Amino acid sequence: MNDEIQVDEKLIEAFHLMFDHFPEGVQLAHKSKRIVALNAACKSLGRDVGMICAKHGPAEAHKGCLAHKTVKNHAASWVKGAQEGPGGQTPVVFWLPIDGYPDFFIHFGVGYMKDYALPPELDEEK
């Protein structure tokens, strides 16, 4: 299988403009689940450009992955509580299609890396 994926540089640039400062890990992936861009928060989780996201971490963490559904239907998908965050909080995990780029999707969780029930002044990373 050819691992070379052609990605429009405008798509990579737009991804970074929107998500580089997002406090949760966000990745831009190809329908093959190969990561083509990620933000710093996602990199801190051990993911990197070029890797297949579904092979990162334990296999059970990827049960319920909705990437294929998102790409096939070109509609947002989400699930609550796919895997607990590091602090034990329950995230909501999203897969978003990208208009004009049917072979790509954005994947992230809200409440995975941060506990939004805590007041911002207790955020350790500030």
Rank of each mutant, 00 (worst) to 15 (best):
M1K: 05
D3G: 08
E4R: 11
Q6C: 02
K10S: 06
K10L: 06
L11T: 01
L11C: 01
I12K: 11
I12A: 04
E13T: 12
E13W: 03
E13K: 14
L17H: 09
F19N: 01
F19T: 00
D20M: 01
F22S: 02
F22Y: 15
F22T: 01
P23A: 04
P23K: 07
E24K: 06
E24D: 07
E24V: 07
G25A: 10
V26H: 02
V26Y: 02
V26P: 00
Q27K: 09
L28R: 04
A29M: 13
H30A: 06
K33W: 04
K33F: 05
R34G: 01
I35M: 04
I35R: 03
V36W: 06
A37Q: 06
A37H: 05
L38Y: 05
L38V: 04
L38G: 03
N39R: 01
A40P: 11
K43M: 06
S44V: 03
G46C: 06
R47G: 11
R47D: 11
A54G: 11
A54Q: 07
K55P: 01
K55R: 11
P58I: 06
P58L: 14
E60N: 12
A61Q: 00
K63F: 13
G64W: 05
C65M: 02
L66V: 08
K69G: 08
T70G: 08
H74V: 08
A75V: 11
A76P: 12
S77Y: 05
S77Q: 15
S77G: 08
S77M: 14
V79Y: 10
G81I: 07
A82R: 15
E84H: 11
G85R: 05
P86Y: 12
G88R: 00
T90K: 01
T90G: 00
P91G: 00
V93Y: 12
V93I: 09
P97E: 10
I98L: 10
I98V: 14
I98N: 06
Y101Q: 02
Y101D: 02
Y101A: 05
P102T: 13
P102A: 12
F105I: 10
G109T: 11
G109M: 09
G109F: 13
G109R: 10
V110Y: 09
M113V: 07
Y116M: 12
P119T: 11
L122M: 14
D123C: 06
E125R: 13
K126Y: 12
K126D: 14
